[in-house]
Structure formats: C-alpha cells, structure tokens
Amino acid sequence: MPSRRRTLLKVIILGDSGVGKTSLMNQYVNRKFSNQYKATIGADFLTKEVQFEDRLFTLQIWDTAGQERFQSLGVAFYRGADCCVLVYDVNVMKSFENLNNWREEFLIQASPSDPENFPFVVLGNKVDVDGGNSRVVSEKKARAWCASKGNIPYFETSAKEGINVEDAFQCIAKDALKSGDDEEIYLPDTIDVASSSQQRSTGCEC
C-alpha cells in the first residue's frame, strides 16, 4: 500500500515584469486567464494537489514581483525551493536576456546544496500574441541557451490560451520531486519511490 502522505514541493516562478508569471500560475492552478491581474507586489503562492503513481503531492507555486529592484526579498521566499521556473516573453528580447540574471540571483539567494544540479525549467510565454508575428526570440535560440545551462527543460507556452501549461507544470513537478529526492530534509519517508520510476520519462524535453 503506497503512502498517502502529502508532501510539499516548492516551486518558484521568476522572470521580468509582465512576462506572465501570475497568469501561468493561475492558468495551471485555476484554469483561468484574466487580463486584469495586477502587478505582483511582494510575493504570493497558490497550491495544487498533484498525483504521481498513487502518491499525492502539494505543489506550492510561488509568484514573485518581477522588477529587479525587489530581488533582495528573494532570500525569504526562495529558501527551500525544489524547482525554479524561469519565464520570459518570446516577444521581448530583454526578458530573454535577463534569464541568466534570474538564474544566478536565484542560486545566490536560495543557495541550494547542489547548485550545479538544481532543477530549472524555462518557459517562453505569450506565443499566442499576434499569431507569433511579433516574436523576437526564436525557439532555437532559447533551446540553445537551455542546453548551455545543463540541459534545462524548455516549453513554449501561452497562459492566455492554455497552451502547453499543463505539460510544463507536469515537468516542473517531476523535477521538483526529483530534487526533493536528493534532499532528505524534505522527503524523509518517501525517497525510495521516486528514484527509479520518476526519471524524466514522460514528456519532459530534456
């Protein structure tokens, strides 16, 4: 009988202001999109129950303010993260160029025990805008960057249309679980389950 105990997986969403962090989180958790989200001040999170092979997990998804000026807050929010999601807007070059800053800032502030292997997932959001005509970051370019950073899984999403959001978060949850696998602090009783069966076998492009 597999354990029904719930385990918390903590995920942090980072990226420039206005790339769609709040929208992605709400699309995934509530399957809703609104044009009326306010700029996030401070931080907030939503939770969603996810199930892997008879085990229930609580995915705790943290949404943070995107302006770089608020990064000093990160130290309080990033701690204990199991996975970090880096979001950019495929229509805004700067938001892509900043991914590296977000990644490094996260590693500094969260100081995970094994920064080399800490799981990141990159999402190129807003692929729906203008039928893709206003796009300035090509998928190829994004994938090349992800590859150079230790094969970070990459998804092209639209929070508005709900494109790829579910798949992306499936991957995020699995990576978070795998990360928890290494850190006995967070999954004291359940380490064995994930190790063999939770390899990135279903849909993670990595």
């Binding site: 206005g18 044009n35 306010k38 805004v92």
Partner: peptide, 17 residues
C-alpha cells in the same frame, strides 16, 4: 525604452475594474 515599457505594462493593470 525599458522604463516606458515597464510603466506601460503597469498602468494597464492598475485599478482597471
């Protein structure tokens, strides 16, 4: 451009209701 972009992003999501 960056500054203007940031402001334009925020005013359209300020108290629009």
């Amino acid at each position: 451009r960056e500054r203007r972009g940031l402001i334009e992003k925020d005013v359209v999501r300020t108290d629009r209701s």
